[in-house]
Design a protein around this nucleic acid. Structure first.
Lengths: 212, 212
DNA sequence: ATTTACCCTTGAGGCGGATCAAAGCGCCCC
DNA sequence: GGGGCGCTTTGATCCGCCTCAAGGGTAAAT
């Protein structure tokens, strides 16, 4: 099954720019969209598939920044170059536009507003991520992560497009701890895993309480 | 000594709006500038003193978001209300403007650009914070924190306007661990603390290597 | 259907940071 | 200058997560 969310009906200047100027590219599983420290002169929008951003420290530790689903914009970065790399988690279709082209197309006013909006969404996620990493134990982190996925994909059964290692690197844990916590949550009948890459929430209240 | 940095010579629309429309307020030590979940309809600029943002979870754990020094803008939030509260760490002078007033004054174009710029700075800090919390041990976190302060205040001796508890809540550690790490770094002659609220870097290389 | 390879799970043990407790230390107030 | 209070440091112990090490599962390739 592919995750294809409907795009908002009222399109922002940025969305319109994607529609009209966007180059559509296909990126194979585990291929890079852009590398860490590449110049950040483009915007990207996921059409299908899931994208992961990540950053490697000098000594090889990896931190996953976030996951982007169909309809979501990524590649917004505060500085002139990418502090996080972007890779296709699954095979992806992605639209790309040069920042300068977007400006020329829509004029600075509308574009700035749209970019600001997208940046805000990004900031909100970063704030949430800081809360997750700063003051939460492993159980709570994993619970929070599952909650987040479930909210983005409000179906009865939720897909996990990422493997355990990606979850771990997002949550600042090891793969073993993630696995143990999942087993634990399942043991308590809070969630159920019909397969490793798919789950179902059985006790929303309990999960919410943990994710707090 | 008060930390008063020179403001940039080329003023952005936001800076100009602060200069012309800003209401100057004084906030006493430990007083709130705005509360968590307050409506976010104003921008703030620190004139003197240091401001801290923080968020309390339901069960009482505190995460410090960031510290803001003279010249820095805060109160930018992704959503309609503040997810983090802001408090004066020291006695502060702060300029405040309504967002709507800024818009009316400078027109949306310039303002959006300036806000976008400020938001980018904010995002960069959040990314750094995520890296700090996600994949670093206590030593590295503390080292990174000291490095950050030293870069903002590039004098021989750096002031610590915040207490150990604030450092701990920023770093996702306990006050005891922070204290131990400081003692440790001092023991290795990487830094020196002439007093609890003031330090000096003796081995930049070593500290940088840790902060990586 | 069988093989193989990769990912995920499970187990045992160690370590880093939290917790609990008490003793400095600086600072303000008298 | 003395006393008291809050912050910081230090110590001892505990617990949670990491590390190391095997064992499963699962899914694709043959």
């Amino acid at each position: 099954m592919t995750l294809t969310h409907a795009f908002p009906a009222d399109e922002s200047a940025l969305d319109q720019a994607f529609d009209r100027l966007g180059t559509r590219i296909t990126v194979a599983r585990d291929e890079e969209v852009y590398a860490q420290d590449d110049e950040a002169d483009r915007f990207y929008r996921v059409m299908s598939g899931v994208v992961r951003t990540s950053r490697l420290t000098a000594d090889g530790r990896r931190q996953v920044g976030d996951f982007y689903y169909a309809g979501e914009v990524f590649g917004l970065e505060p500085g002139p170059d990418h502090r996080f790399a972007a890779e296709a988690l699954t095979e992806c279709e992605i639209q790309v536009v040069r920042r300068s082209a977007v400006r020329a197309f829509a004029g600075d006013v509308e574009v700035d507003r749209a970019i600001l909006e997208a940046t805000r969404v990004e900031m909100e996620r970063l704030q949430e991520h800081v809360m997750l990493l700063g003051r939460k134990g492993a159980r709570e982190r994993v619970a929070g992560f599952l909650m987040g996925l479930a909210q983005r994909q409000p179906e009865d059964h939720v897909d996990l497009p990422m493997g355990r290692q990606d979850m771990a690197d997002y949550l600042g844990l090891t793969i073993e701890t993630v696995s143990r916590m999942l087993t634990q949550l399942q043991g308590e009948a809070i969630v159920a895993f019909p397969s490793t890459r798919r789950f179902h929430i059985r006790k929303w209240g309990a999960l919410e309480a943990l994710a707090a």
